[in-house]
């Protein structure tokens, strides 16, 4: 393990809301995470970068309760937690927008908004879904967010990629989570929609002090909204830096070099075109 780690600015002494320490995870012979530790402070936006297959999605799926870690611990708001399923993580205030969006194509938009935390009413003593209430709330909420969805009754499989992404993001922030994990939330979005979601991220942090973990491939977007960057390489965190301590160019070269470490000054001098 290489130690080119830059410490994050110490001025940031906000409490840690979610922490993962020394977590390892393998799938059979494939090692996805090796002794990974990540800290997320209150109101902070943390970018997770790394090549395909570096372990980013596995890392967030451990935090969201989808995967159980082989070793290591997760601490939420100072208490050690052991998530048996994403249900537990959601109950803990950790919401995740997965890369595949986890939307149910055959269900309506409003059912998708509320799945896992449905509203009920009693009909003859039976616990039935309160569809009218969920429909109304979904309609109202989506229009407050300024998300352009034609009709909350239509099934999700009739929406465009961008609309789906908006629904998934809306669902995750609806419950006012304390931690929001976004795995490539901008992948299917146009320029205007990306700006909208990024604006939403900043607004959430400002107004509700939500802590956010963001996986984005466009580095300029990282420098737009993130406070700190963690660089994951072959299942290890090899760089933990504040965005103020690193430039976009340095980050790009570091990831591009494939060395899994921050480049030394003399290496940085090499023009970018020379690196394969």
């Amino acid at each position: 393990m290489l130690h080119n780690t830059i410490s994050p600015p110490l001025s940031n002494d906000a409490p840690v809301v979610l922490e993962m320490s020394h977590v390892s995870k393998s799938f059979g012979a494939v090692t996805a995470l090796v002794d990974v530790s990540v800290k997320l402070r209150k109101g902070e936006v943390l970018a997770l970068v790394g090549d395909n297959g570096a372990g980013k999605s596995t890392l967030i799926k451990v935090l969201s309760g989808y995967h159980k870690p082989d070793a290591g611990t997760i601490t939420s708001k100072g208490r050690p937690v052991r998530f048996q399923s994403p249900r537990d993580a959601r109950a803990e205030g950790i919401e995740t927008v997965y890369q595949d969006l986890a939307l149910i194509g055959d269900l309506s938009i409003y059912h998708n908004m509320f799945i896992g935390r449905e509203y009920h009413k009693r009909v003859l003593g039976m616990r039935m879904l309160d569809n009218d209430r969920m429909r109304g709330m979904a309609e109202e909420y989506l229009s407050t967010l300024g998300i352009n969805i034609p009709n909350v009754n239509s099934t999700v499989d009739r929406l465009s990629g961008g609309q789906r992404q908006c629904v998934a993001v809306a669902r995750s922030i609806y419950s006012s989570p304390s931690v929001l994990i976004l795995d490539e939330p901008l992948a299917a979005l146009g320029v205007r929609e990306s700006a909208h979601v990024l604006g939403l991220v900043q607004k959430l942090r400002r107004e509700r002090e939500v802590s956010i973990i963001l996986i984005v491939h466009n580095y300029s977007q990282i420098f737009e909204v993130c406070d700190r960057i963690n660089f994951l390489h072959s299942g290890e965190i090899v760089l933990d830096a504040a965005t103020s301590d690193i430039t976009e160019e340095e980050l790009t070269r570091t990831v591009k070099s494939g060395l899994g470490r921050l480049l030394r000054p003399e290496e940085r001098a090499v023009p970018m075109a020379a690196t394969p």
């Binding site: 969201s64 959601r90 995740t96 939307l103 055959d106 799945i115 896992g116």
Partner: peptide, 29 residues
């Protein structure tokens, strides 16, 4: 029919068959 269309169990039954990975990700057992 009521169970399928008006209860959480029915909703989760549809979710399971429609997108099993997504259903798990969102916490459907």
């Amino acid at each position: 029919a009521l169970v399928l269309n008006r209860t959480t169990f029915g909703l989760h039954t549809i979710a399971t068959g429609s997108n099993i990975v997504g259903a798990r990700e969102i916490g459907v057992r």
